[in-house]
Design a protein around this nucleic acid. Structure first.
Lengths: 226, 226
DNA sequence: TGCGCCATTTTTGTTGACAATTTCGGCGAC
DNA sequence: GTCGCCGAAATTGTCAACAAAAATGGCGCA
């Protein structure tokens, strides 16, 4: 009956890949699926439209928004700037307990990559980025990043599936962790930016090839490796 | 009848200072004022809540969100990162026509400050920032910045009214213009960041004093000097 | 006189029905 | 056989009434 659980449900369906890009979202269908009134569905769709996950056209209903590769690159560029800020602020505020936590995440990342556990690595990756945002204490930046993340989950997931990718991103992640642990704000900012630059590079490199395949993602999408 | 004109009307009333922070926004009143149904008002309020201009609490209605000084600083920090990105990209893409346009804006800014035309300077300032965003071609960044701007208009306005402020910000703006005109991306990024750093400094400096006064802003608010 | 409780009023949340628009299918003309 | 047109179905947009919750004011009681 409330709009929020409906929005959460649709969001999860989109992020998990159950609802594919450009799929039409008919209000009556969603209303039945989530056992909510059409007004609630409507409000939920409006919310998701503001998050950039769905697209609405006058009298034509809502559909899952397809973010192009160019847009994904744009999103990564903004993330580069904002995550750089968060990393720098985190380096200036990190506590000893948090330093230990980051180190633990780094160790587990190393182990995951060594054992070829791509899924586990993806989860740790997601957790690392999330934790850095929290440690930074920058709620505005965190909110911006959270919204951007939702829009690019699909591309991130495709990237994480790439063969050599974890081997490239692991040292980048470790560099971020080390800089923050060392309270070195400029180094943390640069490490975060370098990491995102690398993501952009990988995205554009994987441009022509494999425009398919990414549809297999209902297992653990939303934890895509960055 | 449509939600959009209602949202636009409320937005303008908030940005112009007619609706002051923490003012309650009663749906029935708005419904009468804008000659729209309550459902339209409701949708408009939801939209504005997502923009961060109003705050809604369950069963307690909507009120104009008051952004604290700390939040305004956070917003400026994010702007520092993202406007830096836009300036850098603009430097790499600016055309000759746009270079001339930027130079013209710079000249008019100089003239406005020389003649003490604070209002005109504010408008040029708004226009410069907007134009740089456009030239950058970074739609994602532009969207992020546009939303942040709405939330901090009130603080920006208070800042623009400060006595010596235009004299400080003018050279910063000119530096941004010059770097973009010279196609010097790193310099443009640094100039934009320096400018925002300066804004943050001025914001925190003007912390204790003059928590009043800013309510006089229905003339040309929304063009507040940055 | 001051405090707490209850009825009233105001305001928000929700639902269902109705109107407007688009889309889809069949029919006829060329 | 194909194109364009017209009606029906599906879908979205809008509204007004109803229900639920919170704010308000008055009353009794200590």
């Amino acid at each position: 009956m409330n709009p929020e659980p409906v929005a959460a449900g649709i969001r999860e369906a989109i992020l998990s890949g159950e609802f594919v890009p450009n799929q039409r979202l008919v209000e009556a269908d969603l209303s039945e699926r989530f056992a909510a009134s059409r007004a609630a569905v409507r409000a939920a769709l409006a919310e998701l439209a503001h998050e950039g996950l769905v697209e609405r056209m006058q009298h034509r209903g809502a559909r899952v928004r397809a973010v192009s590769l160019a847009e994904a690159v744009e999103i990564c560029e903004v993330r580069m700037a904002v995550e750089g800020l968060c990393a720098a602020k985190a380096a200036g505020r990190v506590t000893d307990a948090e330093r230990a936590e980051l180190e633990a995440i780094g160790e587990r990342m190393r182990a995951a990559v060594a054992s070829g556990d791509v899924l586990g690595y993806s989860r740790l990756n997601e957790r690392l980025h999330h934790r850095v945002r929290e440690i930074s204490g920058q709620r505005t930046a965190a909110a911006v990043l959270e919204r951007l993340r939702g829009q690019s989950v699909r591309h991130q997931f495709r990237l994480a599936m790439q063969p050599g990718r974890p081997g490239v991103s692991l040292p980048e992640h470790l560099a971020i962790i080390e800089a923050i642990r060392a309270h070195d704000a400029p180094a943390a900012e640069e490490a975060a930016r370098a990491h995102l630059r690398s993501v952009i590079h990988a995205l554009t490199a994987a441009a022509g090839e494999a425009a398919d395949g990414a549809a297999a993602g209902d297992v653990a999408a939303g934890t895509a490796s960055i």
